[in-house]
């Protein structure tokens, strides 16, 4: 078997998402924010869906949020996940409002609870691509 079939697909940054992936490489969670009404957006969009403004600027988000919802994937859709099931699919509600479809790292499946505070954790996939995931927030 070749590695091509056993590797998880790695995201390919495009022009629109470059600021997001560049930010992740430098440990920053970047999101678009509407210059006219202040709404935050994720994923990348062309117009603010609140006010229809096309003036969206990239800005660093707090990286803080909470588990909005989660499920555990048991089915192996792709051989790269064969040894990982069941793995978590976690929807994080960010402080800024947008939700991210992500995974929790450094957290057992049985410890995931809706409402638990989480913070961004960056995972380097290659020299070119780092992605944000989330982990339980450190107690302060």
């Amino acid at each position: 078997m070749t590695t091509q079939h056993t590797q998880k697909p790695i995201p390919v940054p495009d022009e629109a998402s470059a600021p997001f992936f560049d930010g992740a490489k430098h440990g920053k969670l970047m999101m678009q924010r509407c210059k006219d009404c202040g709404a935050w957006h994720h994923p990348v969009r062309i117009y603010c869906d609140d006010c229809l403004s096309p003036h969206l600027a990239w800005q660093q988000a707090s990286g803080k949020g909470e588990v909005y919802n989660f499920a555990l994937m048991h089915y192996v859709y792709h051989p790269a996940w064969a040894n990982e099931v069941p793995y978590n699919l976690t929807v994080v509600k960010l402080e800024e409002g947008p939700v991210m479809e992500t995974n929790l790292v450094d957290c057992k499946n049985s410890d995931i609870k809706i409402g638990m505070p989480v913070e961004v954790a960056f995972v380097k996939l290659s020299d070119d691509v780092t992605v944000p995931k989330f982990r339980p927030a450190k107690k302060r």
Partner: peptide, 30 residues
Amino acid sequence: TPPGILGMKLHNGYFGANTWYALAMQRHAH
């Protein structure tokens, strides 16, 4: 792999409609 952030969703292992309705069940139960 679709380009951009959609590719990240695939990398995160989000496949098919099953996930979304599992999330519906989870939240309804919660």
